[in-house]
């Protein structure tokens, strides 16, 4: 089905970085669950495909002093099963666990999910609220960007042509913290998220010190953080009126596209309130919103 292209399979990161610095039009093949689909549909007609699956150093999850480091080649099923991504970080492994189907999760990588930057990408909202950073490497060195800076829009990131996304850094949270990931989809079987949301709260029991981060997917071209609403909810008792005010603020800031086949702007706006109420309830326990 494919037009011919060149294929390279570097065995080390060094070899890979050299290769992509010399070939500006290289397309990176990680799990292939986006690239192959895009080649088949004609969206991408590659000259060179660089398969990074054999770079073993990129598929590992480990804990350092300040971060949980996830190699960009780590698959969704590895993330799902990782013992390091429990507790406060569970929202990320939960998001990975419902992405696509089991077979796709065996192949799809977190790096690929980030680089593809689909507005409904399963891992992006959890990574945003976990304040994750991405490590980009090239023959000339390393850059570290926050995930929010890195993702610019659908299929668009700040990555340069000679760079490879090698690691995702999730800051270790020492305070009491909890998070939640929610999505809506059309069928319960394999489906893309029609609209999704992640919420992460630190110091949840102490209203004065409480920090709330919220991120929605598919309501703007990139993950959307309602900063004003986060501030509003952080230091106030959560009431029905506060939620309604939050929804009002959010709906004035977002602009979901009308041409989506997966959900209308109207439905997405309905789901904002649903996600806020359900998410906050899940983390903070029963809250009075009636």
């Amino acid at each position: 089905m494919f037009l011919p292209f060149d294929y390279q399979s570097p065995k080390s990161l060094k070899e890979c970085l050299k290769l992509i610095s010399e070939n500006e039009n290289a397309h990176i093949l990680a799990g292939g669950t986006d690239l192959i689909v895009n080649i088949r549909s004609g969206k991408i007609i590659p000259q060179l495909v660089v398969d990074i699956k054999n770079i073993s150093e990129l598929s590992d999850i480990k804990k350092t002093d300040n971060y949980i480091e996830i190699g960009s080649l780590t698959t969704m099923n590895q993330i799902t099963k990782s013992s390091l991504l429990k507790g406060a970080y569970y929202l990320l492994s939960y998001a990975a666990s419902i992405m696509g189907c089991y077979e796709i999760r065996n192949r799809a990588t977190i790096g690929g999910n980030i680089i593809n930057a689909s507005p409904g990408a399963e891992t992006l909202n959890p990574l945003v609220v976990l304040s994750a950073k991405v490590v980009l490497e090239s023959t000339s060195g390393q850059r570290i960007l926050s995930i929010e800076e890195f993702v610019c829009g659908p299929n668009k990131t700040e990555i340069k042509k000679n760079e490879l996304l090698t690691k995702i850094l999730i800051p270790i949270v020492n305070e009491e913290a909890d998070g939640v990931y929610m999505r809506r989809q059309r069928v319960k079987g394999m489906d893309l998220a029609s609209v999704n949301c992640a919420i992460f709260i630190t110091n949840k029991s102490d209203i004065k010190k409480r920090k709330i981060k919220i991120s929605f997917g598919t309501v703007t071209p990139k993950p959307y953080r309602p900063i004003k609403v986060e501030q509003l909810l952080e230091n106030n008792k959560i009431t029905k009126n506060l939620i309604l005010e939050s929804v009002k603020i959010i709906n004035s800031e977002i602009n979901p596209r009308t041409t989506s086949l997966r959900a209308s702007p109207e439905y997405k706006k309905f789901m904002i309130e649903y996600f806020l109420v359900e998410g906050l309830k899940k983390i903070l326990g029963e809250i009075n919103v009636n």
């Binding site: 059309r186 069928v187 319960k188 079987g189 394999m190 489906d191 893309l192 086949l261 997966r262």
Partner: peptide
Amino acid sequence: YESIIYSDNGKVRNDHFTDYKIPTPED
């Protein structure tokens, strides 16, 4: 779930299982 969706110029917008959803065992 199911319906064929046409664009203004008559193209089928959901000619694939990504956006033409049928029930699966999970449903």
